[in-house]
Amino acid sequence: MTYKLILNGKTLKGETTTEAVDAATAEKVFKQYANDNGVDGEWTYDDATKAFTVTE
Rank of each mutant, 00 (worst) to 15 (best):
A24H: 09
K28M: 12
T16Q: 09
T18D: 02
I6Q: 04
T49Q: 11
L12V: 13
K31G: 03
E15K: 06
Y3S: 03
E19C: 14
K13Q: 12
F30N: 01
A20K: 02
V29C: 08
A24P: 08
E56Y: 10
I6K: 05
N8M: 12
T55A: 05
K10D: 07
K10E: 09
V54Y: 03
I6R: 04
G38R: 06
E15S: 11
A23E: 07
E15H: 09
A34G: 03
Y3E: 04
M1V: 14
E27Y: 15
D40F: 15
T55H: 07
K50F: 09
E42I: 14
T16W: 15
A23C: 13
D36S: 09
T2Q: 10
Y3M: 02
V21T: 11
T17V: 08
V29L: 12
T2C: 13
F30C: 00
D47V: 10
T49C: 08
G38C: 09
G38S: 06
W43N: 00
K13E: 06
D46E: 05
V29A: 08
K50P: 02
N8E: 08
D46Y: 04
A20G: 04
Y3P: 04
L7R: 01
K4G: 03
D47M: 07
G9S: 09
E19T: 14
Y3T: 03
T53G: 03
K50W: 05
D40C: 14
A24V: 10
Y33G: 00
Y3R: 03
A23N: 05
N8V: 13
E42D: 12
D46W: 03
K50Q: 09
E15L: 12
G41N: 02
I6S: 04
L7K: 00
V21L: 11
E15Y: 13
A48F: 11
F52T: 01
T49K: 10
A51K: 10
A24Q: 12
A34N: 02
D22N: 10
E15N: 06
I6G: 02
D46V: 04
D36V: 09
M1S: 13
E15Q: 11
T55S: 08
V54I: 10
D40Q: 13
Y3V: 04
W43P: 00
Y33L: 06
K31Y: 05
V21F: 13
D47W: 08
A24E: 12
G38P: 02
D36R: 09
E27H: 11
N37P: 01
E56D: 09
A23W: 14
K28Q: 11
K13N: 08
E19I: 15
T2P: 05
I6P: 01
Y45K: 01
T44L: 07
D22R: 03
K28Y: 09
A20W: 02
T55N: 09
Y33M: 05
T49V: 07
G38W: 05
K4R: 12
D47P: 15
T53I: 08
T18M: 11
K31E: 04
K28E: 09
T44K: 07
Y45E: 00
G38F: 06
F52R: 00
T49G: 07
D47Q: 10
K28S: 10
N8P: 04
K28C: 09
T16S: 08
A51P: 00
L5S: 01
T2E: 09
T11P: 04
A20E: 04
L5P: 03
M1W: 13
G9M: 13
D22E: 04
A23P: 09
A51E: 13
A34F: 03
D36A: 12
L7V: 13
L7I: 15
T44P: 00
T44M: 08
K31A: 05
D46K: 03
A24R: 10
F52S: 00
K31D: 02
Y3N: 03
V29W: 14
K31T: 05
T11Y: 14
A23T: 07
F30Y: 01
E19P: 05
K4N: 04
D36C: 10
E27Q: 10
T49M: 11
F52M: 01
T55W: 08
A51Y: 07
V39H: 04
V21W: 12
E42K: 10
K13F: 09
L7M: 12
Q32F: 05
F30S: 01
D36Q: 11
Y33R: 03
K31M: 08
V39Y: 08
D46M: 03
K31V: 06
A34T: 07
G38A: 06
M1Q: 14
G14D: 08
A26C: 00
V39M: 09
K31L: 08
V21Y: 12
D46P: 00
D40I: 14
A24K: 11
K13W: 11
T2M: 12
A51S: 14
G14C: 15
D22M: 03
T25P: 01
A48C: 09
D22V: 02
T25V: 07
L12T: 10
Y3L: 02
Q32L: 08
T44F: 10
A20Q: 06
T49I: 09
T17L: 08
K10W: 10
A48V: 13
K50E: 02
K28V: 09
E56H: 06
A34D: 00
F30T: 00
V21K: 12
Q32N: 08
K31Q: 07
K13I: 10
V54H: 01
A20I: 02
L12E: 06
E42F: 13
V54P: 00
N35V: 14
A26S: 02
Y33C: 06
D40R: 13
A20D: 02
M1T: 15
N8D: 10
G38I: 04
T53W: 05
L12G: 06
A23I: 10
D46G: 02
Y3Q: 03
T55K: 06
V54W: 03
V54F: 05
Y45I: 01
A48P: 05
I6T: 04
D47R: 07
G9F: 14
G41Q: 02
G41R: 01
Y33F: 12
N8C: 14
F52E: 00
K13L: 07
E56W: 11
K28W: 08
M1H: 15
V54A: 02
L12R: 09
